[in-house]
Design a protein around this nucleic acid. Sequence first.
DNA 1: TGTACATCAGTGAACGCGCGTTCACTGATGTAC
DNA 2: TGTACATCAGTGAACGCGCGTTCACTGATGTAC
Lengths: 224, 224
Amino acid sequence: MKQSTTKSASLGRPSGRDSEKVRRDLLESARDHFLKRDFKAVSLREIASSAGVNGAMVNYYFGGKKGLYLAMVDELFESLDEKMRSLSDSSEFSIADFSHSYCLLLAENPWWPNFIVREILFSEGETKEEVLQRFSKMIAPKLLHAIGQEVEDGNYREGLNPELTLMSLMGMAIFPFLAAPMIERVFGMKIDESMANKLAEHNVALFMNGVVNQKQQVTEGTGS
Amino acid sequence: MKQSTTKSASLGRPSGRDSEKVRRDLLESARDHFLKRDFKAVSLREIASSAGVNGAMVNYYFGGKKGLYLAMVDELFESLDEKMRSLSDSSEFSIADFSHSYCLLLAENPWWPNFIVREILFSEGETKEEVLQRFSKMIAPKLLHAIGQEVEDGNYREGLNPELTLMSLMGMAIFPFLAAPMIERVFGMKIDESMANKLAEHNVALFMNGVVNQKQQVTEGTGS
DNA sequence: TGTACATCAGTGAACGCGCGTTCACTGATGTAC
DNA sequence: TGTACATCAGTGAACGCGCGTTCACTGATGTAC
């Protein structure tokens, strides 16, 4: 004898029409978890229960855990590609302006350097290659060219190595967001938007003119 | 009837005297694996087989996987603490000299920023706190003070924020080693000792004087 | 110096657990007649 | 407009696997007499 009714609260095809909602909920939940913790450290059951659906849905919609992960990565990159392009496509492109905007972009999306670094450093094979490919094509070549141009035009110091300069610039911009937990601990700073603004200005000033007191140096310089 | 002989090649207490060797081999193997991959991603069986011993030895010597991991972390920090102290204890301590030495130290121990960042970003609880504690006390306070002093003495620009400046400096120094796989791909650079030397010089020059062509600026400046 | 026995380093099979995945099943929805 | 049935979104139990850990056992080494 079968219990045909009231056995389970929600068995059978659901009555709502929002079939796409489950997919989106899973992606969102996956993003929340995967951006905080490692691929292996996050279980499907966690993701599914956060999304409020059955774990088997991950297989149903994405073909498995890896499928869900890659779908999430795709979505992230799409949104970032878009944002980065809008930063670098302005007609009057300057390194300083870009650095500033980039810093603010990072403040809005603090998970982003975090995610990239993790992928590049620790992920295995497949995803790593994919992320490297996408990331490397994204903006670096354009910046590299811009720096080279500035040197050629005599605006930047002669003999400045564009590659090393770009690395320095990226390091200055990205590191504070990477090290946010440590910085909050050691410096008692919160990495919010106002902080990012200060950081952006500081970085541009340091990048352009360094730390040395120019007044002093110029005075000494004219004497020699 | 028991097969008392030749059942296994190595059953019973081994004849050698090197009981400490197993411990050291395990630690070494653990370091090799844990520096490349995540805690969860590395299995005891992998570590043990690399070390050429039985997996149960991890429990025997370290009380479990976490015990082995913490023992490894302890060892790493001990060696780094020592090296860092020898860098910063010189009687005439200058930011520039330190940056240079630090860069070379990183080139010799490329796993180190890698490891710290991973711990800070992705590890869960316990180890994370421990690593944060140790790392934050290691050198940052001394550098922070040194930068503040330079500003006070008028050697560095007035109004320069020491915290932000230290962040920039660390970012410039550490990022290239973090992003090594990407840099090798995009720039075709190998991060070796000669590279580290160039990077160190570049960083110090950029940190001190920025990218702007000073000759040009000074010429313009005297006119105003 | 022999000998009996406790100790000790190490083995290898087995255990339980949580994981990703699979599968039989459910019942609302869409569709053909 | 009914009705029979295929489809489809979703469930929940179960599966096999690899993991960290445990445990009974081994046999060389150290020690007491």
